[in-house]
Design a protein around this nucleic acid. Structure first.
Lengths: 351, 351
DNA sequence: TTGAAAGCGCTAACAT
DNA sequence: ATGTTAGCGCTTTCAA
């Protein structure tokens, strides 16, 4: 097999040889420099390029140009439900601005399950991902957390635009974008208290989980406004899984509460199951609110009310912040909170 | 701002300058060539590399080496549920073999919704994705369909290893890997007929949809084995959405059938809703089978039986086929069908 | 209108 | 043990 056969794609030299001009001329013509060659030659060159399916070798081109117009995306885990939609938002914006994206998926969930990202190994994966991307000459990076929380890792490259997506850094040296969970929790509280509920069960995430903090802060703000006091010791803690929603619901039902706020849809689904078991009709005998707005919330009858985080917009905004830093050679450090959307469905009713 | 400040990462020259040796020596040391320098120099070089967070510029390195050890992944749409898991399978295998992956997401679902991929625009996106990847010097490509069907597009580069994932090419020039839907449909048929069901409603995809073909072929094979004849004109056609499952269930229920096979979980969920509406208890009064094994199947009470396509394995296998072609400089053209897993749940019962 | 030459950062063959 | 050189494919002066 000859060299030419092995090579997948033609180079500028092949076109030069074929058309009897120099590589420089081919480059000039293909890059649209006017007056780089005679009309006849130009046609020949375009023709040859087309026939050979020529595409400039980006390695060589970017090396020469000393820029790649690309940004890296580091995902903690691409298979965790929220992630692809945020990636999509980033891609959409980058495409509109002529930037490429390079994705590095650390596969944390696959590797570590729900363990939080604070072991030495996690940090090692982080550093490898960053430097792999930097080695590929990305001009900035978006780091996507698989759920919203504080991230202790930060990049070792001071001049690299870096934005935390769906999470936030410990120190405010870097920009970040995430859902306004406080406000969302507040709105849920407003809805529930507005419907007359005063005894509301709460099923949160694991004890001490920062993820749920903001949601509950907002929720309690609404309760306070409604003049309802709440004993935080009565908050139940699940592990975000459906079963733990069910088990915790057993502690609540049968009981006095007229509404339950589960801090994610999976647990809300478990609560729903408990209600069915007891013959309680959700949306009539008891109100139920979830979080995440997954499909599973919608397929219950009645559908479970839920909070939709603005995933696509979060991605978009991150991309925007990175590109702005690249193009203005500046450093941005703001925290951007984007509003969630409440989906009120038949799972809630007046007390 | 000086050049050095702007550059994100140090080069081999920086290290050479810092340690007073030539670039070649730095390269040799860093690449583990024994005897490339004295121990003292070696230490100095490693030290400097570490301090500067040096990582070789992959553009330059790969350009020089004339290979990238990378493969491209083209996704029709990363946000469609099945896709990330297949990507993950590819990544896992590539990582184990020291290959990088470069992802190109065409965002078909976002751009075109459920329109099938046979317009000029679709082909244009395909060709752009392929040549963008080839321009980046990938050594092979995996093309991931967002649902299993025939793909008419094929790459313009004859020497490029190319594997269709969760779909298959028109002509058998390229390898492909997808779920064994015929067998899965057969198993579903076996289960249902084994439980004594003879009158089974079928809610398929859009009329003429090749996607459902294999599943139904297998299903009917099982019916034939059970001596049950079936009038194919009674097959109902939905659009894969939950609502269409519900609407089609209205034609079936109330009625004579004792079981319903919906060709995806979303439609099965719609059927479930219809049953509730009629006071029919799924898993007692009627049996229900879905397809895809999404979370939505599991959160119904009772849980809906479903078929799980081997997404991760499909990804892995595709990666394997691409790498094998790269390393052996050969062309593989086989069709690989991987077995699905049946999840039998309480939604099915004897007639 | 055209091309020669230099160089992006790296590696490898070949000196010394 | 260390360095010189050439060249991967491309772009971009600058000269002809």
């Amino acid at each position: 097999m000859t060299e030419a056969e092995v090579r997948i794609i033609a180079t500028i030299k092949d076109i030069a040889r074929l058309t009897g001009v120099s590589a420089a001329t081919v480059s000039n013509v293909l890059n649209g420099k006017s007056g780089a060659a005679s009309d006849a030659k130009m046609q020949e060159i375009f023709q040859a390029a087309k026939e050979l399916h020529y595409r400039p070798n980006t390695l060589a081109k970017n090396l020469k140009l000393r820029r790649t117009k690309s940004i890296g995306i580091i995902t903690e885990d691409l298979t965790v439900f929220h992630t692809p939609e945020m990636v999509d938002g980033i891609e959409e914006y980058c495409e509109s601005q002529g930037y490429e994206i390079i994705l590095d998926n650390m596969r944390f969930f696959k590797r570590f399950g729900n363990n939080f990202t604070d072991t030495r190994l996690h940090t090692e994966f982080f550093e490898n991902a960053v430097s792999a991307l930097v080695a590929q000459q990305v001009e900035g990076i978006v780091y996507i957390g698989y759920h919203c929380r504080e991230i202790i890792q930060k990049p070792a490259f001071p001049h690299l635009p870096f934005v935390y997506c769906n999470c936030y850094p410990k120190e405010p040296e870097y920009a970040c974008v995430y859902p306004n969970d406080e406000d969302a929790g507040y709105q849920v509280g407003k809805v529930l208290t507005g419907l007359g509920h005063t005894n509301i069960g709460i099923i949160s995430g694991p004890k001490g989980n920062v993820n749920a903090r903001a949601r509950l802060d907002g929720f309690f703000r609404a309760l306070r406004e409604a003049g309802i006091s709440y004993d935080v010791n009565t908050i139940l803690h699940g592990d975000w899984g459906r079963d733990s929603g069910y088990e915790n619901a057993k502690k609540l039902l049968p009981g006095d509460c007229t509404a339950i706020f589960a801090l994610n849809d999976a647990m809300a689904s478990g609560v729903f199951f408990r209600c069915q078991e007891l013959g309680l009709q959700v949306g009539r005998d008891i109100s139920l609110f979830g979080y995440d707005n997954l499909n599973i919330a919608r397929v219950h009858t009645p559908a479970i009310s839920s909070v939709e985080p603005p995933l696509h917009d979060i991605g978009r905004k991150c991309a925007q912040l990175v590109l702005e830093q690249i193009e203005t050679r500046s450093r941005l450090t703001q925290r951007v909170l984007l509003p969630c959307t409440l989906h009120l469905r038949d799972s809630v009713c007046p007390r």
